[in-house]
Design a protein around this nucleic acid. Structure first.
Lengths: 247, 247
DNA sequence: CTTAATTAGTGTAAAAAGTACGCTAATTCA
DNA sequence: TGAATTAGCGTACTTTTTACACTAATTAAG
């Protein structure tokens, strides 16, 4: 047996879960499908992989074709291959996720793509999406929740200049919990990864906050030195640990 | 467009990384290939997926067919789909991993399978394996290293009755670091997940150790109550955290 | 039967990290 | 000028982590 001809082959696709943060809400990028199956339904931006491209490359290409987002760094999360997940036959899909600052990108549909529309939808408003995309979204969100404690992902979702309150609200949105303001600031600032820009917020009807910027260069230097980013915490009750909450 | 006929299809496979622990070494189960490509080379036990089976099911079936291991619980880790990863054409593979106690299972080749041999190989002795299996193995080992701090996985690799020293050696093998005996015991015992069997080790030429058993029922009860398993630790040096080492 | 070799088993004090908590400051708007 | 709103800050207590060394129990060899 020296060829693949005797083996079953399947169509395969990539699906992208792109998280954004806006107006205090965690959002996800969805498209409205202009093709069967699930014509007219909202779905994750995803499509078929070509024979001559790697999976990671396909994810980037498909995302651009469907939403106009270019050069987004995507990370593979999980592969979904249940026999009946696609109504037309066997289709295996590899899920990717990413986090971006929605303001840095412009949604732009490509003529001829299967997307009729592309929109940021608050996570809590997502319901009834095509295929098994709810499960894919859940898996990626879970990944995000775990990762955010151990990697400085949050900064991807914010504008370059942000206030500590914005950062805290973002963490609260991702972790779906409330955090203590003083302890959060103490912990974040003690990491020495924020640059105090000596600038103030403008145009707000209250005391303006200081603006900070993430010090990516220093973070990479720390990484190289073997240090780790860690925001996790946990509480002990009766000798048993309870889920960390980053108080 | 209401069919899949127009889309490229690829062969796809599952590959399994089965970890075991024996004689103080972390091992992985490999087969010697009896088929092209890589005939005669060592490889992870993996094979093609059928049209009518889910990925998880395929992983379990393939493992049994190639090595005789039945009903192993496998977890999906990562999908590898580089265009040229298979010399005969495009083959996408989904990697699964598992941990088992090598003594509980008997390796038994099935007639007609592509495995000429199946063997436990110490992780440090694995080199020159087929396809991109080195990368797959590395990915699964990394997953194991991360998971072992947050889930009581270690017990899967040990016999039902074990000593604290055996448990410590296992953690040292997985985390590739040395642990402090007293602190390790304090931490493990404080979780209240070990049953002291009031039995002693026999047949050793030194002071015999107490035997313990993992209390799975209690662990599941703790989980249900929202408690978490957490062996992670980290050290601060100059205000920066350094990788946890579970001292 | 004594001794050597081997591994098991144990506690404490100091340092670091995590937690709970409430008031004053700066700004805009009415 | 006062009301409303959000920013910014420190301390005492608790829990967790860390570093560290000796005695106990058994077998093997002489």
């Amino acid at each position: 047996m020296v060829s693949l001809d005797n083996f079953f082959k399947s169509a395969f696709t990539v699906d992208n879960v792109i998280f954004g943060f806006d107006e205090g809400d965690l959002k996800v990028l969805l498209i409205k499908r202009g093709e069967q199956p699930f014509l007219g339904k909202w779905a994750l931006p995803g499509y078929f992989v070509y024979p001559n491209e790697d999976l990671d490359g396909a994810a980037v290409r498909v995302l651009e074709e469907l939403t106009g987002l270019k050069n987004v760094y995507l990370e593979q999360v999980e592969t979904f291959g249940d026999v009946n997940r696609h109504p037309f036959g066997r289709v295996i899909t590899v899920a990717y996720y990413s986090l971006i600052n929605t303001k840095d990108y412009i949604l732009k549909l490509k003529a001829g793509s299967i997307a009729q529309q592309a929109e940021w939808v608050a996570l809590k408003d997502v319901n009834d999406i095509a295929f098994d995309h709810a499960a894919i979204l859940a898996s990626c969100f879970q990944r995000l929740q775990r990762r955010v404690r151990h990697r400085p992902l949050g900064f991807e979702l914010l504008p370059k200049k942000f206030t500590l309150t914005q950062l805290q609200q973002l963490y609260e949105a991702i972790l779906q919990t409330e955090l203590d303001k003083r302890n959060f600031r103490k912990k974040i600032l003690s990491m020495n990864l924020l640059i105090d820009l000596k600038e103030m917020q403008e145009g707000v009807a209250h005391r303006p906050a200081k603006l900070y910027q993430f010090d990516r260069a220093k973070y990479e230097q720390f990484l190289a030195e073997g240090y780790i980013f860690d925001l996790s915490e946990s509480k002990k009750k009766n000798g048993k640990k309870v889920n960390g909450v980053l108080h």
